[in-house]
């Protein structure tokens, strides 16, 4: 953990200093006033409300979207991953195809496509569900991430020695039973770091939901810039960079630490 802690300290302090230096370089003597303006807008950027009364927009919305998208992608990706290692040609080929298509498509294009592909509202079970921009954003982000999760799942399962499969087979387990009771419990340690990287990537990707009209941190930032003047644009974007960094960097460090631990244990 020591090397990671050092890196964490270096990264946090260093990046904060670099961003602060950039702020001072751009604004010079005005820095104090700009910082005050940033402080006044902090609640809006973080929670989407001017006084932290609700957490429906801003950076909180990014976190909510990322968690829902990851939850959907985890379920769908596991199913797709099981399909990709299926013995039946009829299941394996389409699964691999779907995975490749989803993995190679730009997130922005998928998000745009979801805007138009998903209906405004659907009627099911006698009630009407409407697709808000946020739900469209969640589905649009979950799709490409599903492919990543499926790939991680397959990689993790393949990292478990084949002897485990054979011995479980000789004990009379069926294929799906082996997967559930023997292989996946052992594969989870290989999957965890990669899943965390996938989540960090997804979180970075949530910056794109600004195009769906969801109330995320970038659309709040744009509103703030529109009301306070383009002069503040640099400062606001520096602040948003800092927010994303503070959220994603600890995940990256934790991932590296877990990877080290898995490697040492082998």
């Amino acid at each position: 953990m020591n090397a990671e802690l050092k890196l964490f300290a270096l990264g946090t302090v260093g990046v904060t200093l670099v961003l602060a230096a950039l702020l001072v370089t751009v604004y010079g003597a005005e820095t104090g006033r700009v910082l005050q303006a940033l402080a006044a807008r902090t609640p809006l950027l973080l929670s989407g409300s001017p006084d932290f009364s609700r957490f429906e927009g801003g950076f909180a919305a990014n976190i909510v979207i990322s968690i829902w998208a990851m939850a959907i992608a985890a379920v769908a990706g596991t199913a797709l991953g099981v399909g990709m290692i299926s013995q039946s040609f009829l299941i394996r080929t389409p699964s691999v195809l779907v995975m490749n298509v989803l993995r190679n498509s730009p997130w922005l294009v998928v998000l745009y496509a979801m805007l138009y592909l998903l209906p405004f509202e659907i009627e099911a079970f006698g009630s009407v569900f409407s697709f808000s921009p946020m739900i469209k954003a969640i589905i649009g982000l979950a799709l490409p991430v599903t492919a990543n999760v499926a790939e991680v799942f397959r990689g993790g399962v393949e990292a478990v020695p084949t002897g485990q499969w054979e011995s479980a087979r000789s004990l009379g387990y069926r294929r799906l039973q082996i997967l559930r009771r023997v292989v996946v419990p052992q594969a989870i340690q290989f999957m965890t770091p990669n899943l965390m990287t996938t989540y960090a990537m997804l979180f970075i990707g949530t910056s794109l939901v600004v195009v769906t009209g969801a109330d995320d941190v970038l659309s709040v930032a744009r509103t703030v810039i529109a009301s306070d003047g383009a002069h503040y644009a640099t400062a606001i974007y520096l602040y948003v960079l800092f927010l994303f960094f503070i959220f994603c960097f600890p995940i990256a460090i934790l991932t590296r630490w877990l990877e080290q631990r898995v490697r040492v244990r082998q």
């Binding site: 890196l7 270096l10 260093g14 990046v15 600004v210 002069h231 974007y237 948003v240 994303f244 960094f245």
Partner: peptide, 28 residues
């Protein structure tokens, strides 16, 4: 250390925000 800081800064922030930042800072 500067290289490490550079790598961590650009890897852990969205390219979209970097793009907006560059776009606005350089025009500023």
């Amino acid at each position: 250390s500067p290289v490490t800081i550079f790598v961590e800064l650009f890897r852990n922030t969205p390219p979209l925000v970097q793009l907006f930042f560059l776009y606005f800072m350089l025009s500023e």
